[in-house]
């Protein structure tokens, strides 16, 4: 998808936000026109929100796309000038968001996927000192087996309570879940629903700590 300068300015809000960015000693309007045709060719800007602190600063992911609109590579990630919270600003972490996916290789300067990113599911057998690559189906199948084994062998369906009566409690105390504050809402929601339907009560996220 080709992006015209007009579209670029519209999406980045460079014109409207120029006042704010001038505040930072950086005139986006001038830059935007100077870089037209060079820096904006094949550029797709996509708005996102920073994954670090919870201020909610908007970031703009600039990527190169092929003629069919398919993602080719990352160009840069910068503050979203439209976002009213940060108006284009970014702290050092926000400004380094490019590295979350890609880096410039030491020595060659070549743009490559961040080598620390794990690209395949990995399995560590009991007692082993190494990872083994596995495919998704194998992994999910094994995990589902473990969940079922542990849940079924530890499940408390009914319990006698203080007044002598019996109530349904449907819980397992042998499975625990931790984390999730970096998930999107939709993901956190399905995780909450899944864990509770499995009967998990050891359910905790970073809000606690």
């Amino acid at each position: 998808m080709r992006v015209t300068r007009r579209q670029f300015l519209k999406v980045t809000g460079a014109t409207a936000a120029s006042l704010a960015v001038v505040d930072l000693g950086f005139d986006m309007t001038a830059t935007a026109s100077a870089i037209k045709g060079v820096r904006t060719r094949n550029v797709t800007p996509t708005p996102t929100v920073c994954p670090y602190c919870a201020s909610g600063c908007g970031l703009m992911v600039y990527s190169e796309r092929d003629a069919a609109g398919r993602f080719v590579k990352l160009l840069s990630v910068q503050g979203d000038p439209d976002n009213p919270i940060n108006q284009g600003g970014a702290c050092s972490k926000g400004a380094a968001m490019f590295n979350l996916r890609e880096i410039y290789e030491e020595g060659t300067g070549k743009q490559v996927i961040n080598p620390k990113r794990v690209q395949k599911p990995m399995y560590r057998a009991p007692g082993s000192d190494k990872w083994e690559e596995k495919d998704w189906d194998w992994m999910l199948d094994k995990i589902a087996d473990r969940i079922k084994e542990t849940r079924d062998s530890s499940f408390i369906h009914k319990e006698k309570i203080a007044d002598g009566s019996e109530i349904i409690v449907n819980r397992t105390e042998k499975i625990a879940s931790l984390g999730g504050s970096g998930l999107d809402n939709e993901e956190a929601y399905v995780l909450s629903k899944m864990m509770r339907s499995l009967g998990v009560v050891y359910l905790e996220t970073q809000a606690r700590i």
Binding site: S177, L178, G179, G180, S181, L183
Partner: peptide, 9 residues
């Protein structure tokens, strides 16, 4: 506890 999920933690 037998099994633990660590979701980005």
């Amino acid at each position: 506890i037998e099994g633990l999920f660590v979701n980005g933690s």
